[in-house]
Amino acid sequence: MFRNQYDTDVTTWSPAGRLFQVEYSMEAVKQGSAAIGLRSKTHVILASVNKANSELSSHQKKIFKVDDHIGVAIAGLTADGRVLSRYMRTECINYSYTYESPLPVGRLVVQLADKAQVCTQRSWKRPYGVGLLVGGLDESGAHLYYNCPSGNYFEYQAFAIGSRSQAAKTYMEKKFESFDGSSREDLLKDALFALRETLQGEKLTSSICTIAVVGVGEPFHVLDKDTVQSLINEFELVGEEAPPAEAADEQNQGGDAQPGDQQPADQGPAPMEM
């Protein structure tokens, strides 16, 4: 009747030492449309793919400003993402009320992770079904974090989440070593290229993506459509509707090779270890 007898409750362990409900919530992150983030010493860029649910609807917002120095990009359940963004905004505002200075990014991320962790240890709760890329600037520099429904969090130079994010990761894995010293413009270029990788040949236009920037002397803001389109034109990302055959193959593999899609859930590495 059930896929297995250990996945009906968040707090029940499987004999192999896994929490299936938590792992399922991490699967929800992979279902959402892609979001990517990358950072240099001075800037963080967040980018997302906007996918409308139907021909008749508009797309949902995937990038949120938290404060002048912090923003998030989400993949997964958008509703959960909004709740967590609101929490982060509240924390930032309370901190600046008390100290008249911006909340350090790493501290907000820990608070957020602790909040997510509680949901994995209470029988009457469910884990959040959303992954957050948190980008921000504080006195120790620019930071990019990934917050997972499991309560884990990691700091990255560059990362991608959501559907077909593997393609963007593959692209960024090849280039991340130069990101630290990158200029804002170079970083934007890499963001757009990485984002295109997740589209599987679909044309990249300003109407299907959102780009946001935060950096030294530049408060967090979402770039407007015209700016994004002119960047796309400038980097000649237009007119490449059919990517080279190899690249497409690679993307297919990347997109399909998601654990849990074909394999039973109690095999393969546990998602929280990745």
Partner: peptide
Amino acid sequence: WDDGNSLGPKDIHN
């Protein structure tokens, strides 16, 4: 926190 951030005089005054 041990994270490279620290409270400055302005923060403490506030």
